[in-house]
């Protein structure tokens, strides 16, 4: 059983120590919002700020997004380059993003101090809303989670309820293969969790459909896209200075009109840009206001990268990016 309060205290203590010693400029973590049932990103700039840091299974956001943002900042002309380090709280899956960013030379190792939390699965906010359905809206405040074996004991203003963990588990956590941060300066929490191999059974149904059925399925999904680009903006690996979909000069790749023709182009290109890089943190699908199953595209490419090129992203910062290298024996039977 995990004591979230104890983990939170350890995170606070570490962050405080780092901020007091000046090792880091600020610490990126989570805080609990008074109104929302799920935690939100928080930046602790002073040792006092660390009191607000929070930990629980509702810490869903992949915070490495803000790490890249900070690393991309450039000093004014003539000034020396930035060297300050940033502290960050990561879940095991998010730590793979940092590895991937290091692989791509976006984050130098010495500029990041990582608190790797060993914890169980995160929750799916949609499922949480569903579980809270019978709680009056006015009471859905100060929601806290407590580990009770198979269940989460969820306390809220003026009551509590018990929900099986399996009912709240986020989909991405069901297929997770890392349960301990791949890279960290400090580990918070203990425990060994069994490594379950990923069999990609969640996309099997789609793969087995006929071609026409698959297109019908995707056409329907693509028709819903409103092109808010939240899937891109929430992705820590989409860090280009100028996104190809925003570009107007010299050529506009994608028209602003929202229709299957443009939307599917956007989603296909986005998926290709993440091929061999995506670590399946699931943020794209979580943020989508139209509930488009974006992860199914990413998951397929993760599977194919594994099958074709034996590439599995985010495990080893010494490796080269998948499209930055090649193997003489790469399969290519399709090529005539």
């Amino acid at each position: 059983m995990i004591d979230f309060k104890a983990l939170e205290a350890e995170i606070k203590a570490t962050a405080k120590k780092w901020l007091e010693s000046g090792e880091v400029k600020f610490v990126i973590g989570y805080e609990k919002s008074p109104e929302s049932p799920i935690a939100r990103p928080f930046f602790a700039h002073t040792p006092e700020d660390t009191e607000k840091l929070y930990w629980g299974p509702d810490c869903i956001n992949n915070l490495t997004l803000y790490l890249v943002e900070e690393m991309k900042k450039k000093p004014k002309k003539g000034q020396p380059p930035f060297t300050h380090a940033v502290g960050i709280v990561v879940k095991p899956c998010d730590s793979r993003t940092i590895v991937e960013l290091m692989k791509e030379h976006m984050v130098p190792r010495e500029r990041v101090k990582i608190i790797g939390v060993i914890s169980e699965e995160s929750i799916n906010p949609d499922k949480l809303y569903l579980a809270l359905k019978n709680v009056p809206a006015s009471q859905r405040r100060n929601i806290r989670f407590h580990d009770a074996g198979e269940n989460f004991r969820i306390t809220y203003q003026g009551g509590e309820l018990s929900v099986p963990k399996k009912e709240l588990e986020a989909d991405k956590c069901k297929v997770c293969v890392v349960h301990k941060a791949v890279i960290a300066d400090v580990f918070v929490g203990t425990g060994e969790i069994e490594f379950k191999p990923d069999d990609f059974s969640d996309i099997k149904e789609l793969e087995e459909m006929s071609e026409e059925e698959r297109w019908k399925y995707w056409e329907q999904q693509m028709s819903r896209c409103v092109r808010c680009y939240a899937c891109r903006d929430a992705c820590p690996l989409c860090y280009c200075e100028e996104c190809v979909f925003d570009r107007e000069k010299p050529y506009r790749w994608v028209e602003k009109s929202v229709q299957v023709r443009e939307n599917s182009f956007y989603h296909l290109v986005r998926a290709m840009h993440l091929a061999g890089r995506c670590i399946d943190c699931g943020e794209c699908q979580r943020v989508c206001p139209m509930e488009i199953p974006i992860r199914q595209l990413n998951r397929f490419l993760i599977k194919k990268a594994k099958d074709r090129f034996k590439v599995f992203s985010g495990m080893n910062a010494e490796e080269k990016p998948m499209f930055g290298t090649y193997d003489l024996d790469d399969p290519g039977e399709e090529i005539k």
Partner: peptide, 8 residues
């Protein structure tokens, strides 16, 4: 600071 800049 935490805004993603998406248009949701």
């Amino acid at each position: 600071a935490r805004c993603l800049g998406c248009g949701i």
